[in-house]
Simulated assay, not measured.
Amino acid sequence: MDQVMFIVWRESVEALLVVGILYAWLKASPAGKPGIKYLWGGVAAGLALSGLLALGILGISSWLSDDGQEYFQAGMALVAAALVVQMVYWMKKHGRTLKRELESGLSDAVSHANWWGLLILVMVAVAREGSETVVFLYGSVAGADAAQWPRLILAGALGLLAAFATFWLLQLGGRIMTWRRFFALTEVLLLLLAGALLVSGLEKLVDLGTLPSLLDPVWDSSALLDDSQSVGKLLADFAGYRSHPALMVLLIWLAYWVGTVTLLRRNQARR
């Protein structure tokens, strides 16, 4: 539930940022006001594409055998982890110029009255955030039973409400939190979440016998911090903590952090 709320919150804020930048530019420009309806059309189209992706993923999963579903869920968790790292890397590389790039593309569309080009620009931007949300959520909630779905839906709704509230606070001009601080904080949380998704995918592969466990468990820290309740459960959901880790999963998790930190530091050095 915590993962769902965080994913919906973070991705919705980013989508609101993109739409907010474009809407403010169009509203402030007399030549751009006719494009506002195309802006909302692009938002609707982007959400529709994300919905189709969700239906496609659920359809594929329903056609698979029990083992096939386990492999599919493991694969989606690993893909989601990779997408999170790619998204953080992309935001660190383009975050400073995002507004300028969006406004440049919008200015070109307005100057040529290319409203369909504006619609496509918005559709792609919203669909990108929506598709990431779909993949992340599937990686987090795959395997949930019917009794858990009401709580998961509630978590998603709360995440969406929190996103609107966060966007409003950030629009106040940095009195409480600036955009830079927001992205810096959530990037760390996203990388922790990617580690948790990685661990869940790897554990499925170990359980299926595709990956050797090497040594299982390496230790038992359940007496100190149980990963099924309280703080331990929170760390398990958001950072991949396990009180009974398999050695193979632990080694890959450590390699993930070494590789990710190295990649982001090199990117920072180049900038």
Rank of each mutant, 00 (worst) to 15 (best):
M1P: 14
D2V: 14
V4C: 05
I7G: 05
W9P: 05
W9H: 15
S12A: 15
L16Q: 01
L17S: 01
L17E: 01
V18E: 00
V19P: 00
V19L: 07
I21C: 02
W25M: 06
S29A: 07
G32E: 02
K33V: 15
G35S: 07
I36D: 00
W40G: 03
V43K: 00
A45Q: 07
A48Y: 08
L49M: 13
G51H: 13
L55F: 11
G59D: 05
W63P: 02
W63Y: 07
S65P: 07
E70C: 01
Y71C: 02
F72T: 15
Q73T: 14
G75V: 12
M76W: 09
M76A: 05
L78I: 11
L78Y: 11
A81Q: 03
L83V: 15
Q86L: 14
Q86V: 13
V88E: 06
Y89N: 04
W90A: 12
M91D: 05
K92W: 03
R96Y: 05
R96V: 13
R100D: 15
E101F: 10
E103K: 12
G105M: 08
L106H: 01
D108M: 08
H112W: 07
N114G: 08
W115A: 14
W115N: 10
W116H: 14
L119Q: 09
L121I: 05
M123V: 05
V124Q: 05
A127Y: 12
E129W: 14
E129D: 09
F136E: 04
L137V: 15
S140M: 08
G143Q: 04
A144R: 02
D145P: 04
W149E: 04
A155L: 05
L160W: 06
L160G: 01
L161A: 14
L169Q: 02
L172K: 14
I176R: 06
T178M: 05
T178Y: 07
F182G: 02
F183P: 03
L193C: 06
G195A: 06
L198C: 04
L198V: 11
L198S: 03
G201F: 08
L202D: 02
E203P: 00
E203W: 10
K204W: 06
L205E: 02
V206Q: 00
D207V: 13
T210I: 11
L215N: 02
L215F: 00
L215W: 08
P217M: 09
S221M: 15
S222I: 04
S222K: 03
L224D: 00
L224A: 05
S230M: 09
K233R: 14
L235H: 00
A236G: 03
A236K: 09
F238I: 02
P245Q: 01
V249F: 03
L250G: 01
I252A: 04
W253C: 03
L254N: 00
Y256D: 06
L264P: 01
R265Q: 13
R266G: 15
N267E: 15
A269F: 06
